[in-house]
Design a protein around this nucleic acid. Structure first.
Lengths: 315, 315
DNA sequence: TATATTTGCGTAATTAGTTACGTAAAAAAC
DNA sequence: GTTTTTTACGTAACTAATTACGCAAATATA
């Protein structure tokens, strides 16, 4: 079965963890080889302190651990006499940590181990074609900018948007056309007379007057609709109206696909300028209109009470 | 201070762990995004079982975990009804684990997540110059062949052998010449008369007769010695004898360096063939002689009781 | 100046794995 | 055919980190 033929990358976390384990498993033995009485997990703290005294949170920030982790490690190192703790005089909350004399001696003694381990890692790198060190650096950078979750979410959206088909209105979608619009209108406002007219009789009030309606299908179910209504106006050819997308299919860019399709439709009908009315309460919708290229314009008469913003798009 | 200027690589374990954490931190949210009721840590087990039924240790081997870890995960998955456990009929110790119907449904449902995550990882890889995936693969391979500890030990040896100097005998090393030899001889055997002669009077018994002595210094302390004794023999020019290295400096290739130097010395004296006597009890020594190129030969008369092996080297 | 918020840090609980160890079944050795 | 060794697997304890939480000191705000 081809079910798992691509599953490899899915386990990248597990795989990384195992490589980490393999590398750190040897760490204790390496310290033993040099007769350095230091636990491997202490090393980042030790390293930070060798460069200067720091507070608990200061160390944590530098080495990228949580502060409780540092707190514990410092306590352990203190037990072994490697570090000394001292309350900061100026800020009573701070715990200044520094290497003790014994710690400094160890820092001197560990030099050889440093250079040998560094050379060993570099020797391994030389045997390898691909630079693990630089690859880690890059991944750290990339994942700092955008998390793996975000990358995955993008892929999901992209894949799902491929399942969306935009098609012209057919009578079997009359019910969906009404329901999808009614859903959001009555959630935010109240259905008005002019709503019922257009939603109950799309053929008469929209199509026969030279308008158009598009339907978005997701897995062959109607989940979004949008209409172009012919306007009797010297400036505008059509009004973009009755756009509705089911909340069940959010995050699949259906509004965006529908909007783009209706603009294409308007162009093919020879339109030069589109108009729409909305309400600033509907932030995602307004956002979408901006993304589609619409711009805010000054007010004009409207049959809808709920409208407080008007927009236009030059094609 | 240049103390830590090369310390970066030393923390490769820590750094890898942190990248792992960053990647796995998102894992739970990714499962949530797809409404897959699976803990990320279950994934490798789930994956293995989707390919066929397995025993606990079978799963552990496949996914590279310890068996107690698998045992625990299977118990958790069993609680959730994702897998079923069943004693093997033929081998009562074995616990055959398989995906339940619910598990199989989930395996079907998770497909989309697989492909999205795979694509996300590949998208990140495309943004990076260095291929983390391949780099991990290479490191796994290289570390399987030779552990990090071994790599480090090699570096240590190499560095330390640079601290070794091989110099000609001087009277101030007379005491060391005797002590180093006495140390190992009396540990394994008993000092004999001929030992005392050569060790107490190296000038008379070795040097003045046309032989040579080399001393290995480690940090300017004499830690190893070796002699070439002129032989009155038609076949052999010199006997390699009185080789001793302090056990305190083991693992620094001092025997090897001393052996090579004494062979060079023999060549420069115009020797064509070297001879030596030893005892098979002294395995590291015999090994060293083989490495230096010596070959076993049939017996000849010897003043030493302790000898049971004789070797020669053609120069 | 009194109060609210932020910061530093310690303790406790949790997590995802490990090693250590014990038991029982199967296989090998005598 | 009995004894010893190996194998399968579960439980318990440990490890190296985390998050959650609470207290006290410092800082900001009204």
């Amino acid at each position: 079965m081809d079910f798992y033929n691509q599953t490899g990358k899915m386990a990248i976390g597990s795989r990384l963890r195992q490589l980490t384990d393999k590398i750190t498993a040897d760490a204790a033995d390496i310290y033993k080889l040099y007769q350095i009485d230091l636990q491997p997990k202490w090393f980042p703290v030790f390293y930070a302190l060798a460069q200067g005294n720091l507070t608990i949170t200061g160390i944590a920030r530098q080495i990228g651990h949580s502060h409780p982790s540092v707190s514990k490690i410092v306590a352990e190192m203190s037990d072994k006499g490697l570090v000394t703790e001292k309350k900061d005089k100026e800020d009573g909350r701070k715990n200044m940590v520094s290497l003790s004399r014994k710690g400094k001696v160890l820092a001197e003694k560990i030099k050889d181990q440093y250079s040998d381990v560094t050379n060993a890692v570099e020797a391994i790198s030389k045997e390898a074609q691909h630079d693990l060190w630089k690859a880690i650096e890059e991944w750290e950078f990339l994942l700092n900018r955008k998390s793996l979750l975000q990358y995955v979410a993008e892929q999901k959206k992209q894949r799902e948007s491929k399942k969306v088909r935009i098609i012209p209105f057919k009578p079997i979608y009359a019910e969906a056309f009404k329901k999808l619009n009614e859903e959001w209108i009555s959630a935010y406002f109240k259905m008005e007379d002019s709503d019922y007219k257009a939603l109950d009789h799309p053929k008469e009030y929209i199509l026969n007057k030279g308008g158009a309606i598009l339907v978005a299908l997701y897995e062959d179910e109607p989940v979004g609709v949008c209409a172009l209504i012919k306007m009797d106006d010297p400036e505008y050819d059509y009004e973009l109206a009755k756009m509705a997308v089911s909340p069940k299919v959010q995050g699949k860019s259906i509004g965006w696909l529908l909007g783009q399709a209706i603009i294409e439709k308007a162009k093919s009908l020879g339109a030069k300028k589109l108009y729409l009315e909305s309400n600033t309460m509907l932030k995602p919708a307004i956002n979408l209109y901006y993304k589609l290229g619409f711009k805010k314009v000054a007010g004009r008469a409207t049959p809808y009470e709920r409208c407080n913003i008007q927009m236009e798009l030059e094609l």
